[in-house]
Amino acid sequence: MTTQPTWHLSAEELGAYLRSASQRTVRDSSAETHLLACAECRALLATLTDAASTDAAWLRLADDVDRTSRRSWLQLAGAPGLLRTAVATPPLLRAAASAALVLGLVPLLASAIAGEGGLLALLVLAPLTPMAAVTLAYRPAQDPAGEIGLVAPVAGLRLVALRALVVAALALPVVYGSLALVSAVGQPIPASDAVAWLLPGAALAAVTLALGTTRVDPLPVAIGISATWATSAIALGRSGGGIDARSVTALLADPVTQWVALAVAVGAAALVVVRRDEIGYRRSM
């Protein structure tokens, strides 16, 4: 569907363009614009100079033109194309932003309103957040171009796992930042307590990824898991005379919880690898 230009540069004009290589004028820029669109004139230009150097020059010029359109945050120094592209996609950014919002704002608001409640909210939400982020990132509504990407050779496990890792990497500093902030406002939090949620969080995220290889929609499952976790925390709090940050931390840091979480995380990850060809997130099919 390319529209070919209706006019062409003469050999004299192309010669003048070549001679001014080190000092381009406005007129040369116009010639460049035309040459980018006109294969006929590029062919004539190639006869006036060494073909290889012309091709190289055009590649450099076209690269310069294209680079100007790229957003600066895409230019992550040294990052491989897949990582750069995965990081730049809106679904991932939305998921990471949602995770940051939940982890950052909710505990702070709760802390402002209910004092120690902020820490409690953070500890309850933290293990759920990786799962929520992964669930959000792979909803059809979140990734409208998902079906186009799904049939590419890089899609499937590699892309999904990479996105999950990126979300986790973005969520971690937010969690620690929130913990530090809530800790500064309220009571200090031991470092061991601050990482107790990591394995349960990884296990839930891995389960969500594994669900992405089935026909089961991860969203209702994620909601069910969240409700179960919240109910367990509240039940534990009641049995111990009231729910507080210490009881939730104790539940998360309990060796049984940690071993079960590790087993679930490894099992779900293995299931994802085995079922890697079934990775998908188009629940409307």
């Binding site: 294209d66 895409l74 897949l82 592209t85 990407g149 590419a152 899609a155």
Partner: peptide, 16 residues
């Protein structure tokens, strides 16, 4: 942009 989007798909198609 169309360029960015097609570039994204090209990355997924292993144009490294």
């Amino acid at each position: 942009t169309p360029f960015d989007f097609v570039d994204y798909v090209a990355v997924l198609k292993e144009h490294t």
